[in-house]
Amino acid sequence: MAAIAESLFPGAWILLLCGSVLVISVAATVFQVRRRALAVPATEPERSDQLFWDLFLGSAVALPALIIPALTSAWAGLFLAGAAVASGVAAYRGSPRMVAWLSLRRQRREYLPLHTAAQAEHSVLLERWRRYELDPAYCIDYPAMTDVRLPQTAAVIKAMREAEQLRAAGHHGYPPAVERFSRALADAEQAAGIPAAGQ
């Protein structure tokens, strides 16, 4: 009885180790192949070359992890083959969501500096706009800047409102909205006769 227990203990560790390596390698290979298929289309020779190397590297890890335990026990090989198929199916079905999540993460990482720069520019533009509303000298000298009946001033108010709403929502359209606000403010200042040096 002790001999059976001693032989089962190393066998369980080998099964656990090989099973982990097999499941991870199959899932990673399927995910990598599926990710490339969902990505921007590549040329056919390039795609087949990538597919070959993905499958080659995945099978170089997965096959030994399946064959070694299968040589010691057919049941272990059958169990590991079932685990490999299950992990492959799970990776195939879950890969579109994972690819979308990774893409969203990458976009957010790329968007963050643009958003930060847009916030700084937005603050400068709001400060520039406030002087026309709050400074009595500017209100007297440039009354057109607060007259919303003028199309240029109405465009500034509209662009300012849009930029504020997109900033509050954290929308990816916020940086372009700040650019539109900047152009609208410059156009209104030009129409009001404000010299460029005073901007």
Rank of each mutant, 00 (worst) to 15 (best):
A2K: 15
E6H: 08
L8W: 13
P10R: 07
L16A: 15
L17G: 15
G19A: 02
S20G: 05
L22A: 06
L22Y: 00
A28R: 06
V30Y: 04
V33M: 00
R35S: 10
R36P: 01
L38N: 02
A39N: 04
A39S: 14
P41Q: 14
E46G: 02
R47V: 05
D49H: 00
Q50H: 09
L51Q: 01
F52K: 01
W53A: 09
D54S: 05
F56R: 09
A60Q: 03
A62H: 06
A65H: 13
I67L: 11
I67P: 12
P69T: 14
A70K: 06
L71N: 13
T72E: 08
A76P: 04
G77C: 01
L78R: 00
G82Q: 09
V85A: 11
V85N: 04
Y92S: 13
R93I: 03
S95R: 03
S95Y: 05
P96L: 04
R97T: 12
M98S: 09
V99D: 08
W101Q: 07
L102F: 13
S103C: 03
L104N: 07
L104F: 11
R106S: 08
R106P: 08
R106M: 05
Q107E: 14
E110Y: 14
E110L: 15
Y111N: 03
P113Q: 11
P113A: 15
L114Q: 07
L114S: 09
T116G: 10
A118Q: 07
A120I: 05
V124G: 01
L126I: 14
R128W: 00
W129H: 02
W129M: 06
R130P: 03
Y132H: 10
D135E: 08
P136E: 12
A137L: 10
A137Y: 03
T146S: 06
D147R: 09
R149F: 04
P151W: 06
P151Q: 03
P151G: 06
Q152W: 10
Q152G: 00
M160S: 01
M160P: 02
A168F: 09
A169E: 13
H172Y: 10
P176Q: 10
A177L: 03
A177P: 00
R180K: 08
R180G: 06
F181H: 01
A184N: 08
A186W: 02
A192Q: 05
I194W: 01
I194A: 04
P195I: 08
